[in-house]
Design a binder for these strands. Structure first.
Length: 510
RNA sequence: GGCCCGUUCGUCUAGGGGUUAGGACGCCAGAUUUUCAUUCUGGUAGCAGGGGUUCAAUUCCCCUACGGGCUGCCA
């Protein structure tokens, strides 16, 4: 069996969209599954849409996610360059071959002329006029113009494009791994532009040439390309590369949460969730975005979530880190229909990954999030251990650990009104004394001593423990009371208790 | 409009001619007798509709509806 070679081929027109990330992921998984090669190629043939920084963004995103290319842009390899704008001579040569072989022709219609032609056609009732076998006879191209005139125009440097001459009366059939047999009548296919007036190729030409030259075996890309695949097949035929044609797999789209339309960057802004892997900064207003990383997702969790948006291993397994996904992945198990983006499920994955990660692994994320910069590693690890079950997104560490670094300034009024009565007040004073005089602190012995004391005196754990927590953090919610005490330390605890009692008296009296 | 692709709980999905249609998220309830979180248990909810084929269709075929994609000198 020949070596599997797949490519991820984004265009640098802005930050890499999450749908693109999933395409990259599926390509990566397929390559790893078959010990193949995962290639990164930059498709920057539209210079008008080029956005500076986008290439770096793509590389950084893949790096953050751990989807490192084996070959390609930024990595190198035997089939470079891997950036299409640096390959223009190649495309030019092949475009000429197409024309020479009768598979393509020169077209001299200017964009303005085409626009007014389309308007005319529409006025005549044609819904969306196409430059195709039914209309090319009426337009300005090397099929309609005398040969000498064409030669002269080219020699004069008149701008022209090269268009594919779609054959008449054929049916193009191809096998898609995900969708099975798909077919198109050539009568439906337009004469797509292969080479633009600026001398650069369109996606259609560039992608066929590069895939062939780079020996790509499987083209795994979004469903939006399904409609133009017939053109691509025609191109392989025209170049006489048909027996080396790659296999196609067209991925379902990721849809908006509403299910109407594909997920866009606007949806992220509107619903408050990330649709990009990393943050993206732009000068224009409303064009900067936070990414999965900034929201506090772990790369493995984001990947796991994305992997299952359109694919499943066939059983009930859900938590699968990258290497596990690579073992189980198969194109055949990709779902045909589009999947809606569900941020709640994404969060659940993140929570699961945080929960199962060793605290040591979480340490760098924790340190990044908390305000306190001078903290010992042991102490940090203790805190992480305590807080871990309470974290969904990494920044939750900030909120959850606040009580450790700051003394409470406000106390939850409602619960004090309920619990800070004369009886409980007396009990708390006694418990406070017991804490001070206890033989140990912060360990199991301490815990059972204090609990025992509360029980013996019939104070009621349900009264005392919540009050103790409010003393420490101001809130009635939080981790286990005894773990909180241990984290604070005896001295700090006692100070907080004293301060709290005074504050409680003020609050309740007033 | 035309062409192409799709349609199993609210969402992500498993399944496949005869199943109590399975799991996960979410939601609800209960347990862990200190809260919240975690964990555990239980519950809620689905084969778009209509025709065929068949002893039997959610599963195969057709039609309809609905959804999506494409329809650029963009990718």
């Amino acid at each position: 069996m020949t070596e599997i070679r797949v490519r991820f081929a984004p265009s640098p027109t802005g930050p890499l969209h999450i749908g693109g990330v999933r395409t990259a992921l599926y390509n990566y998984l397929f390559a790893k599954k078959h010990q193949g090669t995962f290639i990164l190629r930059i498709e920057d043939t539209d210079q008008t849409r080029y956005v500076p920084g986008a290439e770096e963004y793509i590389q950084q995103s893949l790096k953050w996610l751990g989807l490192n290319p084996d070959e390609g842009f930024g990595v190198g390899g035997p089939f470079g360059p891997y950036k299409q704008s640096e390959r223009r001579d190649i495309y030019l040569e092949y475009a000429e071959k197409l024309v020479a072989g009768g598979h393509a022709y020169y077209a001299f219609d200017t964009p303005d002329e085409l626009e007014s032609w389309r308007k005319d056609m529409e006025a005549q009732g044609v819904h969306s006029p196409k430059y195709d076998q039914s209309t090319r006879r009426n337009l300005k191209n090397s099929l309609t113009l005398p040969e000498a005139e064409v030669r002269q125009m080219v020699a004069d440097g008149k701008p022209y494009v090269v268009r594919l001459k779609v054959p008449e009366g054929e049916t193009v059939v191809f096998e898609d791994i995900i969708r099975g047999n798909v077919q198109f009548e050539t009568a439906e296919l337009d004469d797509k532009v292969m080479l633009k007036a600026d001398g650069l190729p369109t996606y259609h030409l560039a992608n066929i040439i590069d895939d062939h030259l780079m020996k790509i075996t499987h083209v795994i890309r979004g469903e939006e390309w399904l409609s133009s695949t017939a053109h691509h097949v025609l191109l392989y035929r025209a170049f006489d590369w048909e027996d080396e044609i790659p296999q196609f797999a067209h991925l379902p789209l990721i849809l908006k949460p509403s299910g109407k339309g594909k997920l866009s960057k606007r949806d992220g802004a509107q619903f408050g969730f990330p649709v990009f892997p990393l943050e993206w900064y732009a000068e224009e207003e409303n064009e900067s975005y936070l990414g999965f990383r900034e929201f506090g997702f772990l790369p493995d969790a984001a990947l796991n979530f994305l992997a299952l948006l359109g694919w499943s291993p066939g059983d009930d397994q859900e938590i699968m880190p990258l290497d596990e996904l690579a073992k189980l992945f198969s194109l055949e198990k990709i779902v045909k229909s589009g999947a809606r983006f569900d941020i709640e499920k994404a969060k659940w994955f993140n929570q699961q990954y945080i929960l199962s990660k060793k605290s040591e692994k979480l340490l760098p994320y924790f340190l990044e999030v908390i305000p306190e910069k001078e903290i010992s590693e042991t102490r940090a690890l203790e805190i992480i251990e305590l807080l871990k079950p309470r974290i969904t997104l990494l920044p939750d560490f900030l909120k959850e650990s606040r009580f450790i670094f700051e003394r409470p300034e406000v106390y939850e009024q409602k619960m004090l009104e309920k619990k800070w009565n004369a009886v409980n007040r007396e009990a708390m004073i006694k418990v406070n004394g017991q804490i001070r005089n206890a033989a140990t602190f912060g360990d199991d012995v301490f815990e059972s001593e204090i609990k025992g004391f509360i029980d013996e005196n019939k104070f009621g754990l349900g009264n005392i423990l919540p009050l103790l927590r409010v003393c420490m953090s101001g809130s009635s919610q939080g981790p286990d009371v005894f773990r909180m005490m241990a984290i604070l330390g005896k001295e700090e605890l006692i100070q907080r208790l004293d301060a709290a009692f005074k504050a409680f008296d003020d609050i309740i009296k007033a």
